[in-house]
Amino acid sequence: MIKRTIGIVGLLIAVSLIALLNPIPQEQPSPSRWLKTNAQGQVMSPWSGPWTCVYDTKTQLLWEVKTDNESIHDGYWTYSWYDGTQGVENQGDCYFEKNRCDARDLITRINSEKTCGLDNWRLPSSKELLSLVSRDTKPGEPLIAKDFFPQTKRGDYWTKDSQQRLTGTFTYLKEGAMAIDFVNGHLTKLPYRNASFVRLVNTGYVEP
C-alpha cells in the first residue's frame, strides 16, 4: 500500500512537472527569403525594426524600404520618370525637393545618403521589380511581402526600362517607361510625365 501511495504521489508530481516543463511555446522567427538590414547595411532579426533595406537571398538584390516618416524614403512620394537625359523632370510630389520630384532626385539623394552603406542605387529592371510581386497577400493589400516591404502603395512603380512606345490614349506622347502595378502585378507602359512610386534597387550588397 505504501508503494502504491508513493506511486500516486509520483504520478501527481510527474503530471505537475510535465505541465511546468512545457510552458506556452514562445515562437521564434522562421527563416525567410528576405533579410532586413539597418541604415548601415547590417542584417537584423526578422522581428526587429525599423529597418532600411531588404536583401533578397533569391535574387541577390538589395531593395530600398519605404517609410512614412517624410524622409526621402517616404512611401507616399511620387516621381516622374527622368534620368538626366530622357524623360520628364519634376512631375511627382515629395517634401524633400524645393521643386516637384522625379526619379533622378531620389537616386541622387539616396546615393548621397549612402543608404544601407551603398551609393550605386538605381531604378530596377522590369524583371527585377517583377521578382517582388507576391500573390500570397491579404485582401486589399498590394501584391508584395508586406511584412518586409511596408508602406507599399496599391499603385504603379517605375522600372528603368524606358523608350517604350506608348499606345492608346498616350500615343501622342510617343515614349514612356515600364512600370509595375502592384494592384494586379502587371507590367504597364506609362508616359514619363506620370507621377508614380519608386523603389530603388542595388546590386552591390554582399550578403554577410
Partner: peptide
C-alpha cells in the same frame, strides 16, 4: 492564412476586409 516570416503576430483566420485608403496608425 499562411504565417509571414516578418510578422511576429499571426492571427490565423482573423483578417481585415480590403480597403482602398484610410488608416489609423
Amino acid at each position: 492564412v499562411r504565417s509571414r516570416a516578418g510578422d511576429r503576430r499571426y492571427s490565423a483566420g482573423y483578417i481585415a476586409d480590403g480597403k482602398e485608403s484610410g488608416a489609423y496608425v
